[in-house]
Structures are given as structure tokens and as C-alpha cells.
Computed example of a mutant assay.
Amino acid sequence: MNSLLLKNWKLILIAVCFVLIVGAWRYDHAAQYKRGRESMAAEISSRLKDSAIEKAKQDRELSDAYQTGKAVREEKERVRYVQVPKIIEKTTYRNVCLDSDGLSVINAAIADGN
């Protein structure tokens, strides 16, 4: 066995060098892949965080606009709840159910879309 190794020592040395080179090359590519994967994961995470922050900002703005509109609608409704009983309690001396004040309240409610 030793004589076989001694005879072919150049071939064995070339094979060992080839195996070392291939192993180093594979290790380097695995390290590059790992670095690239971690870099892309960090970039994707950053993009997701930025988009979540932007979405939260848009949601806040939409919520503020909705709350403002809701407050305006509720105030108009409160005014109607106060005005309508007053108009209903007025005495009318004709065969008209609503006078001009009542008609203006109804038309305003229709114009507001309620």
C-alpha cells in the first residue's frame, strides 16, 4: 500500500489540491449566499416597516376625517331633533301639514343626504 502511495504521490497530491479548491469554492459561495440572504431579509424588513408606518399614518388621517365628518353629521342631526318638535307643535290654520320652516328643515335633511 505504501509503495502504491509513493508511486502515485503526484496524482494523489493533485486530487487533494482539487478537493481543497472545490471545498473552499463551495464554502465561499455558501458564505456569499448567507450574506446576501441576510442583506435581503434586512431590506425587506425595512420596506415592510416603512410601509406599515405609512399605512398607519394614512389610517390616522382617514380616521380623523371620518371623525370630523361624523361630528358635523351628529351636530346637524341634533339641530333637527330640536327643530322638528318645535315645528310640529306650531299650530297651523290651514290644511297644510308643514309650514315653510318645516319644509326648509326637510329639504336641508334631503340635501345632506340623510
Rank of each mutant, 00 (worst) to 15 (best):
L13K: 09
N95C: 14
K70C: 14
V82G: 03
I14Q: 00
D101A: 01
A24S: 13
Y93Q: 03
N107T: 10
L11K: 12
R35F: 04
K55P: 01
L13Y: 14
I88E: 06
N95L: 04
D50G: 13
N8D: 06
I110S: 11
F18S: 05
N107V: 08
G69D: 02
D101T: 02
G36Y: 10
I12E: 12
Y27L: 07
A109C: 15
A42G: 04
S45E: 14
K86S: 01
Y33G: 12
R47A: 01
Y33N: 08
S63E: 05
K70Y: 06
L98D: 00
T92Q: 12
Q67S: 11
D50Y: 00
K76W: 01
Q83R: 03
H29L: 11
I106N: 01
K55D: 02
G113N: 14
Q67F: 14
V19D: 07
G113Q: 01
D28H: 12
L6E: 11
A71V: 06
K55A: 06
N8R: 15
C97V: 03
C97L: 04
V19R: 02
N114F: 08
T91H: 14
Y33W: 08
A30C: 04
V96A: 03
V16A: 02
K70P: 15
W9H: 15
S104I: 13
S39D: 12
E77Q: 06
A52S: 14
S63D: 11
E38Q: 03
F18G: 04
Q67K: 12
R78I: 02
K76D: 02
T91K: 13
M40S: 06
I53C: 13
L6M: 14
D101K: 00
A108T: 14
S63Y: 14
Y93K: 08
I106V: 04
C17Q: 08
T91D: 04
K86D: 01
E77N: 14
V105E: 14
G36C: 04
E43G: 03
T92F: 11
Q67R: 09
K7Q: 06
I110W: 13
E77T: 03
W9A: 08
S46D: 13
G69W: 00
I87F: 07
T68D: 12
